[in-house]
Amino acid sequence: MSMASCDILRRSRHLERVESVTAETTVRHVDQLDTETLDAFYRALTADRPVSEADVDLEPGEVIVFTDYYRVART
């Protein structure tokens, strides 16, 4: 694996379904995402693949409310 692709992986996000959230968790509803981030979020969910950090306004650790709750995680 090249250094460049390692870098992209390190800077990408994936989604993990969670059953509940704690009081300390940052939570956003999917309607708070801009159009491009919503697009990337939806693609990540339906294609089950990570998205590049550069493409999205998603912070590691935050939970996005969609049809389930999804935690944004570093890949």
């Binding site: 959230v21 009081a23 300390e24 939570v27 956003r28 309607d31 708070q32 939970v63 409310v65 709750y69």
Partner: peptide
């Protein structure tokens, strides 16, 4: 507060603090 998320609180799924 986050008016979009208050329905999640009413559903019993989300605590108050993140709202």
């Amino acid at each position: 507060y986050n008016r979009i998320l208050i329905k999640e609180h009413a559903k019993g799924k989300l605590p108050e603090a993140p709202i």
